[in-house]
Every structure is written in structure tokens, then in C-alpha cells.
Simulated scan of single mutants.
Amino acid sequence: MNATDVFVPWLDADAKPMIEFSGVTKNYGDFTAIDNIDLKIFPREFFALLGPSGCGKTTMMRMLGGFENVTKGTITIDGQDMKGVPANKRAVNMMFQSYALFPHLSVADNLAFGLKRSEMPKSEIKGRVDEMLRLVQLGKFASRKPHQLSGGQRQRVALARALAKAPKLLLLDEPLGALDKKLRQETQFELMDIQEKTGTTFVIVTHDQEEAMTMASRIAVMDHGKLVQVDTPDRIYEAPNSVYVADFIGDVNIIEGRIAKADGEAAELAWAEGHSPIRGMSGAGVSSGQGGAFAIRPEKIVIGTEEPTDVHNRISGEVEDIAYLGNISTYYVRLENGALVKSQTANTRRIARRGITWNDKVWLSWTDTAGIVLAG
């Protein structure tokens, strides 16, 4: 796929999904882990299931892999109903967080292990192993044992082993959880590159928002067994469909109030007596008179010591705290009504030259399209 191609099969009414959940429910006794889910995932997608612990994302993955049975509904993979199809008969492979490498086998033998038990002719196995080693750039480490590798290298061996049998679908369960932050960020791009080269459909389970936002073509945000929002990373970040999604993805300010006006793409939220309503984009299902909330990202709020006159949305407060993170600083500003609002700025100057400090009286301002008014 070259840079000019746009990969959006979910917008094509004729596109056939690789995976389809239709009315899928999973019960454990009286507990409903997955609640009547409909979902389509398309070939070559890098799809993320994102949510807190216990939201049902791992259960969905285990049903795809054939390790859990569906209570109600159907799951199809590449057009085939998976009911009654055991895990070892599915064109699916799974990569676990623990990697589960054989410690007594070399890297090459770990990759060959599953191939020797498959229908692949023995004469082709070495060539396939060499191909996988090249894919993950581990040719020089073929004779090493897992304990002689770094965490990132072990992760790539596990990935190569999972891809060796050329599955149509690869399931990744928190695959980067054991890596440190810097290596995790590097490996995210390696995974994306490998996924694009192989054309395999990847479904990743993660609770790490940054991981999902970086790698996925689309994200399903889950809560208590339901899909709360399924969309592209930019849409989930910029246009969350609920306070839950806005609060779960990234850093955000949530200001509660009553929706004073909802007119097409624009809305206003009455939030504090004596203050003008906040103007923002209109979220899904908002209507005048109902309770609501305004969600805005800290980086979209401008902080300054002078009252701005060129924007409608402006409020004053006092700097209560400052978090210095090297490339950015986050200012925690206490408003007159007691609410705490965060504003983030890039540190383009040395910290000694910062113009705003603790206990300063400041103004916060933002444009009419910087945030979104959501139903309460």
C-alpha cells in the first residue's frame, strides 16, 4: 500500500469482513462477560480491543481463538462460522504476553517447532524459518537460546513463530506489556511494519491507550462487555461519543453542566452561575435542557496572564500546580467555582524563562471548535 492509498474498508458497503461478530453474548453462569456484540473487522486491519481490566476484551479474543465457546450469536472468520471449530483447526494464531518460548530450543528451532507438526513438507521448513528470521531481523541470532536474547528480541521471536504458519488472523494479547517504555515504543513501529509486509489481519488486546492509538487502524473501546465506540484513533480522540470514552482516552478536562443550546454541529453548556456558557462542537445525541459535560484536551487550552479578547471561551483562575515533563509543562489551574482545569504547553524555552509560575492569576481560553459537548 503506497502513501496515496487510503485504507478504509469499513466505509465500503461491498467490503467483506475477515471477522464478524453477530449478536455475540458470552455468559459465565449469571455473569455476562460479552453483551450482544456486533462487530466487523476487515482483512489487513490492525484492530485494537481497548479497555480497562474486566471489560471483556480478552474474552472476545479467546472466543476468536477457539478457547471459549459463544453462549449466543455467531462468529465468522473469512466467511466460515466458527461454531464447533476447535482452536487448532482455525486459520488463527495467538501470541501471548508471556511469549511461551521453549527455553531449551534455539531461536530457529522455536520457529520450526510448530511447522514440523503442520502439513508443511519438511523440505520447505528451513526456508520458511529463514524467511521469518529475515522478517523480524534476527538472522544473526538463529542459534541462540531465549535466555541469551533481550526482551525485545524474545518478543520478535514469538511474533515470528506466530506468523510462521501464515495465519489469516493473528491475535496479540498485551504483547508489549513486558517491555520497558522506550523499547515498547520502538517495537510498536516494528509490529506495524511487519503487519503491513505480511498483510495479516492483526487483532490486539491492550489497556494501553497510547499503544492502541499508535498502531491500530481502528479501535473498539469496551466497557462492561459492550462496545462503547468503534472508530479510527483520531475520531476517538477528537470526537468521543461519550464522557466515558473522552475520559478513558488520553488526558482530558471534563466540565459538567446543563446543555443550554444544541444547534447542528455546535452546542453550548451552562456550567457556572455568572459565567457565559461554554461553546463547543456538538456530540452525539445532545439536546437542549439535558445534563451534559464539556470535554477538552489540555493541549487545546491556551494559558496566559492577560485576558484574551478574541475568543468567546475564556475563564480565569489561579495556578495551583505545575508538572514539568521536559518537552511539555502541564498547568493545573483552580477556577473560581473550585473546578481544576489542566492546560498543556510545549517547552520551547528553557524552564528558567517560564512566564507563569505557582499562584499566578491566569486566563484560560480556547476556540469554539476545540472541545466537544457530550450528553450527560
Rank of each mutant, 00 (worst) to 15 (best):
A13V: 11
A13W: 00
K16V: 12
K16E: 15
M18R: 14
I19R: 11
F21A: 12
T25I: 08
T32W: 05
P43H: 04
A48V: 02
P52H: 09
T59L: 01
M61I: 12
G66S: 09
G66E: 07
I77F: 05
Q80E: 14
M82P: 00
A87R: 11
Y99I: 10
S106G: 10
D109T: 08
R128F: 01
L133F: 06
S143H: 15
S143T: 14
K145G: 12
P146T: 10
H147P: 03
S150L: 03
G152R: 12
L159H: 10
A160L: 03
R161M: 05
R161F: 07
A162P: 06
A166T: 11
L169N: 04
D173R: 10
E174Q: 09
L179A: 05
E186I: 06
Q188T: 10
E190I: 11
D193T: 15
Q195R: 05
G199A: 01
T200Q: 03
T200H: 02
F202L: 04
V205P: 02
D208C: 12
Q209L: 09
E210D: 13
E211Q: 13
A212W: 04
A212Y: 06
S217R: 12
Q229L: 01
P233G: 03
S242M: 01
I249G: 01
G250E: 02
I255P: 00
G264N: 08
P277G: 09
G280E: 07
V286L: 10
Q290E: 15
G292L: 08
I296P: 03
P298V: 13
I301L: 12
I303A: 07
G304P: 02
P308F: 04
I322W: 01
A323M: 09
N327G: 15
V333D: 00
R334V: 03
N337T: 00
S343E: 00
S343Y: 00
S343M: 00
R353N: 15
R353T: 13
D360G: 07
W363V: 05
W363C: 08
S365T: 02
